Simulated scan of single mutants.
Amino acid sequence: MTNKMQKPPNSPIRLALVAYPGAQRSAVEGLADLFALLPRLSRGEEAIQRLETRTVTETDRPAGSVDAFVFPPSLESTQARPDHPLAHWARAQHGAGALACSVCAGAFWLGHAGLLDRRPATTHWALEPAFRAAFPQVELQPDHILVDDLDIVTAGGLMAWLDLGLHLTGLWFGPDMVSRLARHLLVDPAGREQRHYSGFRPARGHGDAAVLRAQRRIETGFADPLSVADLATHAGLSERTFLRRFQAATGLGPAAYLQRLRVEKARGALERSGGTTAEIAWSVGYRDPSAFARAFKSGTGLTPGAYRARFRVTPRPQRPAALCRPAGARI
Protein backbone atom coordinates (compact mmCIF):
# COMPACT_ATOMS: atom_id res chain seq x y z
CA MET A 1 0.00 0.00 0.00
CA THR A 2 1.73 3.14 -1.14
CA ASN A 3 -1.09 5.65 -1.69
CA LYS A 4 -3.44 7.41 0.68
CA MET A 5 -6.45 5.41 1.74
CA GLN A 6 -9.28 6.14 -0.68
CA LYS A 7 -12.34 7.27 1.28
CA PRO A 8 -15.05 9.88 0.70
CA PRO A 9 -13.72 13.37 1.69
CA ASN A 10 -16.04 13.81 4.67
CA SER A 11 -15.76 10.24 5.93
CA PRO A 12 -13.39 9.77 8.90
CA ILE A 13 -10.70 7.10 9.00
CA ARG A 14 -11.72 4.71 11.76
CA LEU A 15 -8.71 3.26 13.61
CA ALA A 16 -9.08 0.68 16.39
CA LEU A 17 -6.30 0.29 18.98
CA VAL A 18 -6.65 -3.16 20.50
CA ALA A 19 -6.00 -3.19 24.26
CA TYR A 20 -5.79 -6.96 24.59
CA PRO A 21 -4.89 -8.52 27.98
CA GLY A 22 -1.25 -7.63 28.64
CA ALA A 23 -1.03 -4.94 25.94
CA GLN A 24 1.45 -2.13 26.57
CA ARG A 25 -0.75 0.77 27.64
CA SER A 26 1.87 3.37 26.77
CA ALA A 27 1.78 2.20 23.14
CA VAL A 28 -2.03 2.35 23.00
CA GLU A 29 -2.10 5.85 24.47
CA GLY A 30 0.99 6.91 22.52
CA LEU A 31 -0.57 6.01 19.16
CA ALA A 32 -3.75 7.84 20.14
CA ASP A 33 -1.73 10.92 21.09
CA LEU A 34 0.37 10.70 17.90
CA PHE A 35 -2.68 10.80 15.65
CA ALA A 36 -4.31 13.51 17.77
CA LEU A 37 -1.40 15.78 16.79
CA LEU A 38 -2.19 15.69 13.07
CA PRO A 39 -4.93 18.34 12.93
CA ARG A 40 -2.69 20.74 14.86
CA LEU A 41 0.24 20.08 12.52
CA SER A 42 -1.87 20.77 9.43
CA ARG A 43 -1.51 24.47 10.39
CA GLY A 44 -4.83 25.25 8.78
CA GLU A 45 -3.13 25.18 5.37
CA GLU A 46 -5.26 22.36 4.05
CA ALA A 47 -8.23 20.33 5.06
CA ILE A 48 -7.11 17.12 6.73
CA GLN A 49 -9.28 14.06 6.75
CA ARG A 50 -10.56 13.24 10.21
CA LEU A 51 -9.12 10.23 11.95
CA GLU A 52 -11.14 8.69 14.75
CA THR A 53 -9.35 6.39 17.15
CA ARG A 54 -11.04 4.13 19.63
CA THR A 55 -9.78 1.53 22.04
CA VAL A 56 -11.05 -2.01 21.59
CA THR A 57 -10.98 -4.54 24.40
CA GLU A 58 -12.02 -8.15 24.87
CA THR A 59 -15.42 -7.03 26.15
CA ASP A 60 -15.84 -3.86 24.10
CA ARG A 61 -15.56 -4.61 20.39
CA PRO A 62 -17.23 -2.41 17.78
CA ALA A 63 -20.08 -4.10 15.95
CA GLY A 64 -19.42 -2.06 12.81
CA SER A 65 -16.39 -2.16 10.57
CA VAL A 66 -13.18 -0.20 11.04
CA ASP A 67 -10.66 0.93 8.44
CA ALA A 68 -7.60 -0.28 10.34
CA PHE A 69 -6.72 -1.93 13.63
CA VAL A 70 -3.49 -2.26 15.59
CA PHE A 71 -2.42 -4.95 18.04
CA PRO A 72 0.25 -3.10 20.10
CA PRO A 73 3.27 -4.60 21.88
CA SER A 74 3.18 -6.36 25.22
CA LEU A 75 5.47 -6.51 28.24
CA GLU A 76 3.77 -9.70 29.41
CA SER A 77 2.37 -12.89 27.95
CA THR A 78 0.00 -11.84 25.17
CA GLN A 79 -2.59 -14.57 25.92
CA ALA A 80 -3.23 -14.77 22.18
CA ARG A 81 -4.96 -17.89 20.89
CA PRO A 82 -7.01 -18.76 17.79
CA ASP A 83 -10.33 -19.00 19.67
CA HIS A 84 -9.97 -15.70 21.55
CA PRO A 85 -12.80 -13.21 20.86
CA LEU A 86 -10.27 -10.60 19.69
CA ALA A 87 -8.78 -13.07 17.19
CA HIS A 88 -12.28 -13.74 15.81
CA TRP A 89 -12.91 -9.99 15.66
CA ALA A 90 -9.61 -9.36 13.82
CA ARG A 91 -10.39 -12.06 11.25
CA ALA A 92 -13.80 -10.56 10.59
CA GLN A 93 -12.50 -6.99 10.34
CA HIS A 94 -9.68 -7.96 7.98
CA GLY A 95 -12.10 -10.00 5.90
CA ALA A 96 -14.29 -6.90 5.59
CA GLY A 97 -11.35 -4.89 4.24
CA ALA A 98 -9.63 -3.44 7.32
CA LEU A 99 -5.88 -2.86 7.32
CA ALA A 100 -4.40 -5.24 9.95
CA CYS A 101 -1.40 -3.94 11.92
CA SER A 102 0.73 -5.19 14.79
CA VAL A 103 3.73 -4.12 16.83
CA CYS A 104 6.21 -6.52 18.46
CA ALA A 105 4.31 -9.31 20.28
CA GLY A 106 1.08 -8.05 18.73
CA ALA A 107 2.05 -10.13 15.69
CA PHE A 108 1.10 -13.25 17.68
CA TRP A 109 -2.51 -12.05 17.59
CA LEU A 110 -2.42 -11.65 13.82
CA GLY A 111 -0.79 -15.08 13.58
CA HIS A 112 -3.45 -16.74 15.74
CA ALA A 113 -6.13 -14.94 13.72
CA GLY A 114 -4.76 -16.79 10.68
CA LEU A 115 -3.82 -13.60 8.83
CA LEU A 116 -0.08 -14.17 8.38
CA ASP A 117 0.31 -17.60 6.79
CA ARG A 118 2.50 -17.40 3.66
CA ARG A 119 2.82 -13.66 4.26
CA PRO A 120 5.96 -11.64 5.14
CA ALA A 121 5.89 -10.23 8.67
CA THR A 122 8.13 -9.09 11.48
CA THR A 123 8.13 -9.12 15.27
CA HIS A 124 10.70 -8.36 17.97
CA TRP A 125 13.96 -10.15 17.23
CA ALA A 126 13.98 -11.73 20.71
CA LEU A 127 10.63 -13.38 19.95
CA GLU A 128 11.86 -14.99 16.72
CA PRO A 129 12.26 -18.59 18.02
CA ALA A 130 8.84 -18.63 19.70
CA PHE A 131 7.17 -17.01 16.70
CA ARG A 132 8.73 -19.41 14.20
CA ALA A 133 7.68 -22.38 16.34
CA ALA A 134 4.11 -21.09 16.60
CA PHE A 135 3.72 -19.98 12.98
CA PRO A 136 6.03 -21.97 10.67
CA GLN A 137 4.08 -20.87 7.57
CA VAL A 138 4.86 -17.17 8.11
CA GLU A 139 7.70 -15.62 6.09
CA LEU A 140 9.26 -14.02 9.16
CA GLN A 141 11.68 -11.14 8.50
CA PRO A 142 13.04 -10.29 11.97
CA ASP A 143 15.77 -7.97 10.65
CA HIS A 144 13.20 -5.38 9.62
CA ILE A 145 11.61 -2.75 11.84
CA LEU A 146 8.53 -2.63 9.60
CA VAL A 147 7.07 -4.84 6.87
CA ASP A 148 4.25 -3.45 4.70
CA ASP A 149 2.42 -6.22 2.81
CA LEU A 150 -0.42 -4.04 1.48
CA ASP A 151 -3.32 -5.11 3.72
CA ILE A 152 -1.10 -6.16 6.65
CA VAL A 153 1.60 -4.03 8.29
CA THR A 154 3.79 -5.45 11.06
CA ALA A 155 6.41 -3.61 13.10
CA GLY A 156 9.18 -5.10 15.21
CA GLY A 157 10.33 -3.68 18.54
CA LEU A 158 8.57 -2.47 21.67
CA MET A 159 8.93 1.15 20.57
CA ALA A 160 8.20 0.42 16.90
CA TRP A 161 4.69 1.77 17.43
CA LEU A 162 6.33 5.09 16.53
CA ASP A 163 7.51 3.63 13.21
CA LEU A 164 4.06 2.24 12.57
CA GLY A 165 2.40 5.54 13.46
CA LEU A 166 4.64 7.45 11.05
CA HIS A 167 4.05 4.84 8.36
CA LEU A 168 0.27 5.01 8.68
CA THR A 169 0.48 8.80 8.67
CA GLY A 170 2.26 8.58 5.33
CA LEU A 171 -0.34 6.20 3.90
CA TRP A 172 -3.26 8.37 4.91
CA PHE A 173 -1.90 11.92 4.86
CA GLY A 174 1.23 11.89 2.70
CA PRO A 175 4.99 12.40 3.19
CA ASP A 176 4.80 16.08 4.11
CA MET A 177 2.73 15.26 7.19
CA VAL A 178 5.20 12.49 8.10
CA SER A 179 8.01 15.05 8.01
CA ARG A 180 6.08 17.49 10.19
CA LEU A 181 5.15 14.81 12.68
CA ALA A 182 8.70 13.41 12.88
CA ARG A 183 10.15 16.87 13.47
CA HIS A 184 7.55 17.58 16.14
CA LEU A 185 8.29 14.28 17.93
CA LEU A 186 12.06 14.57 17.39
CA VAL A 187 12.27 11.10 15.85
CA ASP A 188 14.05 9.77 12.78
CA PRO A 189 11.36 8.78 10.27
CA ALA A 190 13.41 6.25 8.32
CA GLY A 191 16.59 4.25 7.92
CA ARG A 192 16.36 1.84 10.86
CA GLU A 193 16.42 -1.93 10.90
CA GLN A 194 16.09 -4.39 13.80
CA ARG A 195 19.42 -5.97 13.00
CA HIS A 196 21.08 -2.66 14.02
CA TYR A 197 19.89 -3.44 17.55
CA SER A 198 19.39 -7.19 17.86
CA GLY A 199 22.02 -9.27 19.62
CA PHE A 200 23.05 -12.88 19.14
CA ARG A 201 21.66 -15.13 21.86
CA PRO A 202 22.48 -18.72 20.87
CA ALA A 203 20.06 -21.52 21.69
CA ARG A 204 21.18 -23.49 24.77
CA GLY A 205 18.05 -25.25 25.92
CA HIS A 206 18.15 -27.94 23.24
CA GLY A 207 19.35 -30.69 25.58
CA ASP A 208 22.19 -31.98 23.36
CA ALA A 209 25.22 -32.20 25.65
CA ALA A 210 27.65 -32.86 22.80
CA VAL A 211 26.55 -29.74 20.95
CA LEU A 212 26.79 -27.73 24.17
CA ARG A 213 30.43 -28.80 24.49
CA ALA A 214 31.07 -27.54 20.97
CA GLN A 215 29.26 -24.27 21.73
CA ARG A 216 31.46 -23.69 24.75
CA ARG A 217 34.54 -24.38 22.61
CA ILE A 218 33.41 -21.76 20.11
CA GLU A 219 32.52 -19.23 22.78
CA THR A 220 35.87 -19.51 24.54
CA GLY A 221 37.97 -19.83 21.39
CA PHE A 222 36.09 -17.63 18.90
CA ALA A 223 39.29 -15.76 18.00
CA ASP A 224 41.01 -19.04 17.02
CA PRO A 225 40.89 -20.57 13.52
CA LEU A 226 38.37 -23.25 14.50
CA SER A 227 37.55 -26.07 12.08
CA VAL A 228 34.63 -28.47 11.86
CA ALA A 229 37.04 -31.33 12.60
CA ASP A 230 38.22 -29.60 15.79
CA LEU A 231 34.66 -28.93 16.96
CA ALA A 232 33.49 -32.45 16.12
CA THR A 233 36.37 -33.91 18.11
CA HIS A 234 35.54 -31.62 21.02
CA ALA A 235 31.93 -32.80 20.87
CA GLY A 236 32.99 -36.45 20.62
CA LEU A 237 31.13 -36.98 17.34
CA SER A 238 31.94 -37.76 13.73
CA GLU A 239 31.98 -34.69 11.49
CA ARG A 240 28.83 -35.73 9.65
CA THR A 241 26.89 -36.42 12.85
CA PHE A 242 28.21 -33.24 14.45
CA LEU A 243 27.07 -31.06 11.54
CA ARG A 244 23.61 -32.58 11.56
CA ARG A 245 23.13 -32.30 15.32
CA PHE A 246 24.63 -28.82 15.59
CA GLN A 247 22.27 -27.50 12.91
CA ALA A 248 19.28 -29.20 14.51
CA ALA A 249 20.12 -27.88 18.00
CA THR A 250 21.11 -24.30 17.22
CA GLY A 251 19.42 -23.56 13.92
CA LEU A 252 22.79 -22.60 12.42
CA GLY A 253 25.76 -24.31 10.88
CA PRO A 254 29.06 -24.02 12.82
CA ALA A 255 30.52 -21.43 10.43
CA ALA A 256 27.44 -19.20 10.60
CA TYR A 257 27.31 -19.62 14.39
CA LEU A 258 30.97 -18.62 14.71
CA GLN A 259 30.51 -15.59 12.46
CA ARG A 260 27.47 -14.36 14.39
CA LEU A 261 29.30 -14.81 17.69
CA ARG A 262 32.33 -12.89 16.39
CA VAL A 263 30.09 -10.07 15.17
CA GLU A 264 28.38 -9.97 18.58
CA LYS A 265 31.77 -9.73 20.33
CA ALA A 266 32.77 -6.98 17.90
CA ARG A 267 29.58 -5.04 18.69
CA GLY A 268 30.56 -4.90 22.35
CA ALA A 269 34.12 -3.82 21.54
CA LEU A 270 32.90 -1.08 19.20
CA GLU A 271 30.45 0.17 21.82
CA ARG A 272 32.83 0.16 24.78
CA SER A 273 36.47 0.26 23.65
CA GLY A 274 38.65 2.73 21.81
CA GLY A 275 40.42 0.15 19.66
CA THR A 276 40.69 0.63 15.92
CA THR A 277 38.52 -1.41 13.59
CA ALA A 278 41.56 -3.44 12.55
CA GLU A 279 42.43 -4.17 16.20
CA ILE A 280 38.88 -5.24 16.98
CA ALA A 281 38.76 -7.39 13.85
CA TRP A 282 41.92 -9.19 14.97
CA SER A 283 40.63 -9.62 18.53
CA VAL A 284 37.50 -11.44 17.34
CA GLY A 285 39.30 -13.73 14.90
CA TYR A 286 39.45 -11.86 11.58
CA ARG A 287 42.91 -11.44 10.11
CA ASP A 288 41.58 -9.47 7.14
CA PRO A 289 39.87 -6.18 8.17
CA SER A 290 37.94 -6.00 4.90
CA ALA A 291 36.51 -9.50 5.47
CA PHE A 292 35.53 -8.42 8.99
CA ALA A 293 33.84 -5.27 7.66
CA ARG A 294 31.82 -7.33 5.16
CA ALA A 295 30.76 -9.86 7.80
CA PHE A 296 29.87 -7.11 10.26
CA LYS A 297 27.73 -5.22 7.76
CA SER A 298 26.05 -8.43 6.65
CA GLY A 299 25.09 -9.17 10.25
CA THR A 300 24.13 -5.69 11.46
CA GLY A 301 23.31 -3.68 8.35
CA LEU A 302 25.95 -1.10 9.33
CA THR A 303 29.67 -0.70 8.77
CA PRO A 304 31.80 -0.98 11.92
CA GLY A 305 32.40 2.79 11.81
CA ALA A 306 28.72 3.62 11.43
CA TYR A 307 27.82 1.20 14.21
CA ARG A 308 30.34 2.80 16.58
CA ALA A 309 29.12 6.30 15.70
CA ARG A 310 25.54 5.32 16.52
CA PHE A 311 25.97 3.05 19.55
CA ARG A 312 29.23 3.93 21.28
CA VAL A 313 28.80 4.25 25.03
CA THR A 314 30.37 7.51 26.20
CA PRO A 315 32.07 7.10 29.58
CA ARG A 316 30.59 9.18 32.36
CA PRO A 317 32.93 12.09 33.21
CA GLN A 318 34.88 11.64 36.43
CA ARG A 319 34.00 14.08 39.17
CA PRO A 320 36.87 16.26 40.40
CA ALA A 321 38.59 14.73 43.42
CA ALA A 322 37.56 17.65 45.63
CA LEU A 323 33.91 16.93 44.92
CA CYS A 324 34.29 13.25 45.78
CA ARG A 325 35.52 13.72 49.38
CA PRO A 326 33.23 12.30 52.02
CA ALA A 327 31.20 14.72 54.07
CA GLY A 328 33.24 16.29 56.85
CA ALA A 329 36.59 15.48 55.25
CA ARG A 330 39.20 18.19 55.76
CA ILE A 331 40.71 19.90 52.72
Rank of each mutant, 00 (worst) to 15 (best):
G95P: 09
I218K: 01
R192Q: 14
F173M: 09
G207Y: 01
T57V: 12
G285P: 07
L226Q: 08
D83N: 10
G301M: 08
A105D: 09
L110Q: 07
H206F: 12
S227A: 09
T2E: 12
Q141T: 11
D288M: 02
S74I: 00
I13M: 05
P85R: 09
A209Q: 12
A329W: 15
A190D: 15
G64L: 03
G22A: 08
A203P: 04
L38K: 05
H124F: 07
P21D: 10
W89K: 04
H184P: 10
G275L: 10
T220K: 06
G106N: 04
G299T: 12
S77T: 15
L270K: 01
L237D: 07
T250P: 01
T123E: 02
Y307L: 01
S74C: 08
G221F: 01
H184K: 10
R81H: 13
R260G: 10
R61W: 09
T59D: 13
H167V: 07
V284S: 00
A248P: 05
D60R: 02
A281F: 03
T123W: 03
P289W: 00
R119F: 07
L31D: 02
E219W: 06
A249E: 07
T220P: 00
E29F: 14
D83G: 02
A329R: 13
P8C: 01
G174M: 04
D83C: 03
L212E: 00
C101W: 06
D60A: 13
S42A: 15
A113C: 08
P142M: 10
V28W: 08
I280W: 05
L186S: 15
L127R: 09
R260F: 10
T123P: 07
E76F: 08
P8G: 00
H184V: 00
R201S: 14
L302Y: 06
P21M: 06
P320T: 14
A321D: 15
V228P: 00
S65I: 09
A329I: 12
Q49P: 13
W172N: 01
V18Q: 03
R81M: 05
